[in-house]
Design a protein around this nucleic acid. Structure first.
Length: 861
RNA sequence: GCCGAGGUGGUGAAAUUGGGAAACACGAUAGGUUUAGGACCUAUUGCCGAAAGGUUUGUGGGUUCAAAUCCCACCCUCGGCACCA
């Protein structure tokens, strides 16, 4: 009987004791393979079957590459800092560290039970001083390069978590973690200047093997747009308002300007504004709005004219009014826009509401006397219906009339550039990464504030700045970290002047910790460097990175940023951290809903393993569907995989009987009756499984194995060679079962009769030290094929023929078939279509054989 | 609204250089085995039809000897972004 519980525990123990998955630091780079999982956050609930999906996939690939002869690095660790630990600590009155380590122990145990190949000696935990010393070191490098900046900025502040958040952590105006409404708050904060790398982050997406949707998401997030920055002078004033536009061709249609509420022009020209009180009131109002409120007003644009202040449109020197409105964002572009109501829907709505002039400057080009798609503005009783945002030719634009808009864009822009009124500019939506967090459970920011010398970095030799043990983790509200309560921590001396100074009390965003962890695995115990150069060289960049699509922008963007910075600092020699990225799909509960404790639809790992065994669970998770697809757990579906493994087990136990008969010389040496078809099936399966593993198509690999096994159980006798092949092919998917069978088969051959205790690697040769099977290309093709005979494209007959059948022969055989004859009788054959090795199609044109399509057409007309 | 992925049996899905639609599995039905249940084995299983045969890949159209696959239009689902000038 197949008893997974027994053999799985046994092999996990043996693999662990013999050090099968220890990774050696040597061998040439090209024979090394770095397979990385996104490391888990040690949450209190542990893992469920959904979390394992990616880990199983990467484990299959790791085992496969190992058998292919690669030196595989497959490490695991924990992203251990973060808010939930702190919140749990407050709630349960235990230290965040205690809580975190308790969870780590739980998850580590769970990961062991699935039989993953992790080299636990390389485990890293981001909340350990040995690790965050280097996180702090990274901060210092960024600081020294001018990439870490302190600035007073309007921050996203979560009143419930009492901390600021990065833009990436605000979802729909709500805190990504707790869901509370995010408010805007001006606080002095540390920022990483990721925007300096916007272009590289965009450009280098080209060369990496990542899912297209992930690349697209990053591209959109970076949001590059090219255009001109155009200066609008202000009448009777030395000030000017620069605006950014991608549509310089519409400049003649710019009938007013709009500035963001935060725009400096308002305070600069205070004295000139006749309705200052009104304007200031509006600004106050918009400041009080939350991000969500602003978003919900997308349709209804509000604004106030700044009276008595007029701008000059540089192309025609016309005086135009200026408005302040919060639909213009201060942080994007120049914080001011030129409004072209006829050719921008937002400006159009605003102009209509406040009754502002509209000038049409782009006419769509008629295509075949028809308006193009997304038809442009329509004039009804002298009024426009909507803005036309497409291309066309210019009108009402002086000497540019009649010019194509795309050309005019360059011409007008270049013309103004010559006069010094415009310059070419590129803008990005990407904003700098705010990394300060006013929370306890994170890596302290290694900075010291001195009254005399300003902000000073903690000297590298003094790292790590240890996170002090404090009793009260409650944040101090008002944007102060709980660390501020510890005088012992705060009070220090200035590294520059030696005078008394204060430490920064904020901690770093946990995404900083995870932005470089993949480097640490190469050399996890190094206390002189974050990792030794030669070790980085032999392992990095990561060959395969597997993890959830939810990290498409945050983690993956930050990690790429860090890699680029380190490359520029000459600390590493590559510019992209993850060469190949694959996302695992989400596993939903049996009810088709996302698994969650509150819905009660969580499938726990432990119970599943107890019932079916880890191998069955692994197999089923991979068999459910395509790796990246979202699929619901089917409590009955797993039965099929369980049956399959039982079948394999049974197949082998039958063999054991046969083997003993063989020893009694009752069987011939060659147990297999010569079976060419089976031989070919083997080669086809090896090819299929090999290619499918490399392409992450585990579901079809498993189905190929099922087909092979279904065929094998029908055989009266089998060669040992064949059995070994099946076991090897199945081994990455079901490692415990196959290791057991492998050792049994070897036992059959009389090599060892084993008591498993006290084995060392040289004595015990694991199946995962064996070579992955190879196939012969010529044997992956069938010798005899089912040849299809079609009449007018419909299958009418099938014949078994040799694969290499010629056209002549095929025609002859076809015309002899009674079944085929019946379909054309005496009618004229118009043509034969012969597809070698596949089919023949006889085309008959006859009234009776008018295709149904035509009949339908006929009836319709 | 924009960007991306997708839409195939009762279910998860397979087939994408254009060439047998539904592999593999679940479920269901019938039979065998069993004291019974379970397990296992055999057969059937897209739909209509007694059969011959017809018909079927979100909808409509097109290209082709031949379309799930290519082209055009539309509908729907999921994911992301969203006043980004």
């Amino acid at each position: 009987m197949y008893n997974p519980q027994r053999i799985e525990k046994k092999w996990q123990k043996i693999w662990g004791k013999t050090g099968l998955y220890k990774t050696a630091d040597k061998i040439k780079r090209k024979k090394n393979f770095y397979c990385l999982d996104m490391f888990p956050y040690p949450s209190g609930e542990g893992l469920h079957v959904g979390h394992l999906h990616g880990y199983i996939g990467s484990d299959i690939v790791s085992r496969y590459f190992k058998m292919k002869g690669f030196n595989v690095l497959h490490p695991m660790g924990f992203d251990a800092f973060g808010l939930p630990a702190e919140n749990a600590a407050i709630k349960r009155k235990i230290h965040p560290k205690t809580w975190t380590y308790k969870n780590i122990r739980l998850i580590r145990k769970q990961l062991r039970t699935i039989g993953a190949t992790y080299d636990w000696e390389r485990e890293i935990i981001t909340c350990e001083p040995e690790y965050y010393k280097w996180t702090q070191w990274m901060f210092l490098q960024l600081f020294k390069k001018g990439l870490a900046e302190r600035a007073k900025v309007a921050c996203n502040f979560c009143p419930s978590c009492k901390t600021v958040l990065a833009n990436e952590q605000v979802v729909d105006g709500k805190c990504e973690r707790c869901g509370s409404e995010v408010i805007q708050k001006e606080i002095e904060q540390w920022l990483f200047k990721i925007t300096d790398y916007a272009e590289d982050l965009l450009k280098d997406l080209e060369g990496i093997d990542w899912p297209e949707r992930t690349k697209t998401m990053q591209r959109n997030w970076i949001g590059k747009s090219e255009g001109y920055e155009i200066k609008f002078e202000i009448r009777n004033s030395k000030f000017e308002i620069p605006v950014f536009t991608t549509r310089a061709d519409t400049l003649f249609g710019a009938t007013y300007l709009v500035v963001a509420p935060e725009h400096p022009i308002i305070s600069n020209l205070k004295s000139q504004i006749s309705n200052l009180k009104f304007v200031e009131e509006y600004i106050e109002q918009s400041k009080r709005k939350t991000e969500r409120e602003r978003l919900s007003e997308v349709k209804d644009k509000t604004g106030v004219e700044i009276k008595e202040v007029k701008a000059i449109n540089p192309v025609n020197n016309r005086e135009i009014p200026i408005f302040v409105a919060d639909y213009v964002l201060f942080h994007y572009g120049t914080g001011a826009i030129m409004a072209v109501p006829c050719h921008d829907q937002r400006d159009f709505e605003f102009a209509r509401k406040y009754n502002l002039p509209m000038v049409e400057v782009i006419k769509p080009i008629l295509q075949e006397k028809k308006l193009p798609e997304r038809a442009p503005l329509v004039v009804s009783d002298g009024r426009f219906e909507r803005a036309y945002e497409g291309e066309g030719y210019l009108t009402n634009s002086g000497r540019f009339d009649g010019m194509n808009s795309e050309i005019a864009r360059q011409e007008i822009g270049a013309g103004l550039e010559k006069k010094g009124l415009a310059k070419k500019r590129v803008h990005y939506k990407l904003r700098d990464w705010l990394i300060s967090r006013q929370r306890y459970w994170g890596a302290p920011i290694p900075m010291i504030s001195c009254q005399k010398c300003g902000w000073q970095p903690v000297p590298e030799k003094e790292l790590p700045v240890l996170l002090p043990k404090i009793k009260d983790y409650l944040p101090v509200g008002e944007g102060k970290s709980p660390l501020a309560k510890s005088r012992k921590f705060v009070e220090t001396t200035c590294p520059k002047c030696g005078g008394s100074a204060q430490r920064e009390t904020d901690t770093m965003d946990t995404f900083v910790c995870s932005s470089w962890y993949y480097l640490r695995y190469a050399d996890p115990k190094n206390d002189k460097k974050f990792a030794a150069k030669e070790k980085l060289r032999s392992w990095l960049p990561v060959d395969l990175y597997v993890g959830g699509a939810e990290h498409a922008v945050m983690h993956l963007l930050y990690a790429r940023f860090f890699t680029k910075v380190l490359k520029d600092l000459r600390r590493i020699s590559f510019k992209e951290p993850f060469l190949k990225l694959r996302h695992q799909g989400t596993i939903l509960g049996p009810d088709g809903q996302k698994m969650s404790k509150s819905k009660g639809n969580v499938i726990p790992i432990d119970e599943t393993i107890k019932k079916y065994g880890a191998d069955t669970m692994r197999l089923y998770e991979m068999f459910m569907g395509p790796f990246e697809a979202t699929t619901a757990w089917d409590t009955r579906g797993i039965e099929g995989c369980s049956r399959f493994l039982k079948k394999v087990w049974k197949l082998m136990s039958n063999v054991k009987c046969q083997m003993s008969l063989y020893r009694k010389r009752k069987f011939s040496r060659n147990l297999n009756v010569k079976n060419e078809k089976l031989e070919r099936l083997f080669h086809q399966t090896i090819k299929k499984v090999t290619e499918d593993i490399e392409n992450f198509r585990f579901n079809t690999a498993i189905s190929a194995l099922m087909i092979l096994v279904n065929e094998l159980v029908k055989q009266p006798a089998l060669e040992i060679r064949s059995l070994k092949l099946v076991v090897k092919l199945l081994s990455p998917f079901a490692p415990h079962l196959t290791e057991e069978l492998w050792q049994k088969i070897r036992g059959c051959r009389g090599l060892t009769s084993t008591s498993w205790r006290g084995l060392t690697l040289p004595e015990f040769k694991s199946i995962f030290q064996e070579k992955w099977p190879k196939y012969k290309k010529e044997l992956t093709k069938e010798a005899v094929i089912t040849f299809i005979i079609q009449v007018n494209g419909k299958v009418r007959d099938k014949i078994e023929v040799e694969a290499g059948i010629s056209e002549e022969e095929a025609k002859k055989l076809t015309l002899e078939r009674e079944k085929v004859k019946k379909w054309f009788g005496s009618k004229e054959i118009k043509k034969f279509i012969f597809v070698p090795g596949k089919l023949i199609n006889i085309v008959i044109s006859d009234n009776e054989f008018v295709s149904n399509k035509r009949i339908r057409l006929f009836v319709n007309s």
